[in-house]
Amino acid sequence: MKKFNDLKFIDLFAGIGGFRQALEYYGGKCVFSSEIDEQACITYEANYGEKPFGDITLIKSHEIPSHDILCGGFPCQAFSISGKQRGFEDTRGTLFFEIARITEYHKPLMLFLENVKNLVRHDSGKTFKHMLDILNDLGYNVFYKVLNAGHYSVPQFRERVYMLCFRKDLGVDYYQFPEPSGSYTYLCDILLPDNETDKYVIDRNDMVLYYNLEQNHAAKPLRIGTINKGGQGERIYSPYGHAVTLSAHGGGAAAKTGAYLINGRVRKLAPRECCLVQGFPADFIIPVSDGQAYKQFGNSVAIPVLKSILKNVVQLDGLRDFVKNHEDIIP
Rank of each mutant, 00 (worst) to 15 (best):
K199C: 04
N216Y: 09
K220P: 03
K199H: 09
I190R: 03
G225V: 04
K229V: 01
E196N: 08
N228F: 03
G225Q: 07
V201E: 13
R204K: 13
G230K: 09
D198G: 00
M207T: 07
P193T: 07
Y210L: 12
Y211V: 08
A219T: 06
T197N: 10
N205H: 14
I202Y: 06
I227D: 03
G230N: 05
I227E: 02
L209A: 05
C188A: 12
N212G: 07
R223T: 09
I227T: 02
G231D: 05
N216I: 03
L192T: 01
K220W: 12
G225F: 05
D203K: 15
D194S: 13
Y200R: 05
N212F: 11
N205F: 11
Y200I: 04
H217V: 04
R223G: 02
Y210W: 13
V208N: 10
L209M: 15
H217Q: 14
P193N: 10
H217A: 09
L209C: 08
L222V: 00
H217G: 02
T197P: 00
L222F: 07
E196W: 09
I227N: 02
K229R: 15
L222I: 01
T226R: 13
G230M: 04
K220H: 12
P193K: 10
K220V: 03
E214D: 10
M207I: 15
K229P: 00
D194C: 07
I227L: 14
Q215N: 15
L209H: 12
K220I: 05
K220M: 08
D206V: 03
N195V: 06
G225L: 04
L192W: 00
V201P: 09
H217P: 05
A219W: 04
I227P: 00
R223I: 06
L191R: 04
D194R: 13
P193F: 05
H217I: 02
D206H: 08
Y200D: 02
H217W: 05
P193C: 01
M207W: 03
G231S: 10
T226L: 11
